[in-house]
Write a protein that binds this DNA or RNA. Structure first.
Lengths: 343, 343
DNA sequence: CATGCTTCTGTGAGCGTTCACAGTAGAGAA
DNA sequence: TTCTCTACTGTGAACGCTCACAGAAGCATG
């Protein structure tokens, strides 16, 4: 592309101007800018005054040219984007990451790898060093882009445990298993014993973990596992409706359902309503996510809140640490039971 | 912040490496890279081969340092962000802009100006020339950040007509007035004569325009304007519910309602349902936006689709043109009536 | 007085590009 | 021939910064 400089703007002040204004050398200004060790209080003050007076802002391009880093990170979305952009959790995540990065003065580049072509371009862009690291929102399947980035040694932090990327990729995730256990424990504490589950997709760690938590908690409570009480879904509302239908058919005596997402739970509520079951009197329903869907319609959903604000903050923290040379890390954050009307 | 280079990555090839590989000079490689005028076919081919062989990617920092442009643009959100991030239209817009820019190989920086502090930091960042231009999603009120950017001569394209920024700011907007007229025309064509309206906030151009379109179309059809048929809202679902209640109280004989947003229309549907009015038999309802809310519940909403994909594409086109030196421009895009069940 | 150490400061080099300019070769015209 | 013009190519300088190094000043120690 070609971009010519527009007329209106005049040359911004350089480090040289600041140095002259402060009566010191470029080196001293640079030292004040970065860390400020080995500079006298008098010089530091003079430089800061000069910066204020001139309105100096460091030229990141010049800095990056010599340091070899860009002081920016990418936010990479490798899945079909509709799904994520419509997910409120994703929005919270994106917003949280942007703000956390802003606090460190690190710009965030939004990268959408939809088509094969985009994927290639973005991979080159990243491996060329135009960003220092990548916040990755992938899911399901092993992701070729992520794999390539990992192989190229690009600092990478995934949201949720990535599949098939080896253990050397950092990730931040909610404690799906523990969250599921907490919800099941809650349902059991209400006296329910025929607790069903609509799972998420079982090719995702989240889906697997939530099911595992369900089983564990039942086992611990001494409630026998009954596979007729478990049906699988894909997190969509429609799959919640269908799942509830199967569940009612397979186990008509179900008196509680743990649903692996709020969106599916909406579908479950609809099906239960159609079937004439009252919620929570006949069937208690517990969701997962605490998304806006949880309070959108019907009885307000009792659910498990994923700490998206903390997740984004941790992703940024881990990524910056890794860019700073630290080793990859996995962070699991606790979830929280939100009691509403459905259970 | 401090970021030290991580071990894994080795030095990427430079233009020098390519030049050596191709047996030409840096200048020739540079010419091939940018436009390719005045370079012999043989040289061009050799350079391209060398680029492929070495895996060369231009160092944007070095380029930016000398050209003075960053070849990147900012996507600036100056309003309380929750509102926008939960708006599906906003998501389409963000996605569309990112993709349109990607096609030009221009990275998009996401900038959220929530707090006063962020606002100041972002303003400095932009005016320092770290982005070549800004895609602005503001709304309502005159925006101090936008005003400052305009004054600094930063290329700027707003989404929707901005208020109080003078005429020298580019913007891209849907044709609110014409869209409103089309909907009202549709309602009239169904034989309805007591057509009410729930307006959007009247301190926004969109709100004003939709109301104006409503009035114009009524006038053209020779239907007398009745102010009891008009109540105002703020685009939220709750204000739709409240608005419909007022409407029913003021004008019980209302037989159609044009609602200025789908979200409000959902509220209107709920109120009508509670009041025992059937939709569309007793009262026809027309929305605006064609957001997912339009098909979320109740009768599927007849609505006006705003061409968000085209809006984002046009915003990018206008911005890049302006960065290239062209004058600011206003683009108004046509809307489209989407017929569903509610009217 | 020399020596060393610490704290502070200035200077030159260089990061990887683009740009302006100078220069070359070949073709065609005078 | 000689001159001009076009098509192409190479070269040095510059962009604004950081980094390594050299050096100065102050102070304590030998």
């Amino acid at each position: 592309m070609t971009m010519s400089n527009t007329g209106g703007r005049r040359r911004p002040p350089t480090i040289h101007d600041v140095a002259r204004e402060a009566g010191v050398s470029r080196g001293t200004v640079s030292r004040v800018l970065n860390g400020g060790h080995y500079v006298s209080p008098a010089a530091e003050e003079a430089v800061n005054a000069a910066i204020r007076k001139t309105g100096y802002v460091v030229n990141r391009h010049a800095r990056s040219l010599i340091t070899g880093r860009s002081d920016s990170v990418g936010f990479l979305l490798t899945e079909p984007q509709e799904r994520f952009f419509e997910d409120p959790n994703f929005n919270v995540l994106l917003r949280g990451c942007t703000q956390a990065l802003a606090a460190h003065d690190v710009p965030l580049l939004l990268m959408l790898a939809g088509t094969k072509d985009e994927r290639r371009r973005i991979t080159r862009y990243i491996t060329a060093g135009h960003v220092d690291g990548v916040l990755l929102v992938s899911s399901h399947s092993g992701d070729p882009v992520a794999e390539e980035l990992r192989a190229a040694g690009v600092p990478l932090v995934a949201c949720g445990k990535p599949i098939g990327l080896g253990s050397k990729v950092s990730y931040v995730a909610a404690d799906d298993r523990d969250g599921a256990r907490e919800m099941v424990r809650h349902l059991l504490s209400l006296g329910r014993r025929r607790v069903g589950m609509v799972t998420g997709p079982l090719d995702t760690p989240g889906g697997v973990e939530r099911l595992a938590g369900y089983k564990e908690e039942l086992a611990e409570a001494g409630v026998a596992f009954d596979e007729r009480l478990v049906v699988s879904g894909d997190y969509s509302r429609a799959s919640g409706e269908a799942g509830a239908e199967r569940l009612l058919a397979q186990a008509p005596d179900v008196d509680a359902v743990f649903v692996a997402s709020d969106l599916m739970a909406q579908g479950v509520l609809a099906t239960l309503q159609r079937a004439g079951r009252r919620v929570p009197e006949d069937v208690a329903v517990g969701g997962f996510d605490d998304s806006p869907a949880a309070v959108a319609a019907g009885p307000q959903l009792t659910t498990i809140r994923q700490p998206w604000d903390r997740i984004s903050a941790e992703m940024v923290r881990v990524l910056l640490a890794q860019i700073g040379g630290e080793d990859p890390a996995a962070v699991i954050l606790p979830t929280e039971l939100v009691r509403r009307d459905s259970a």
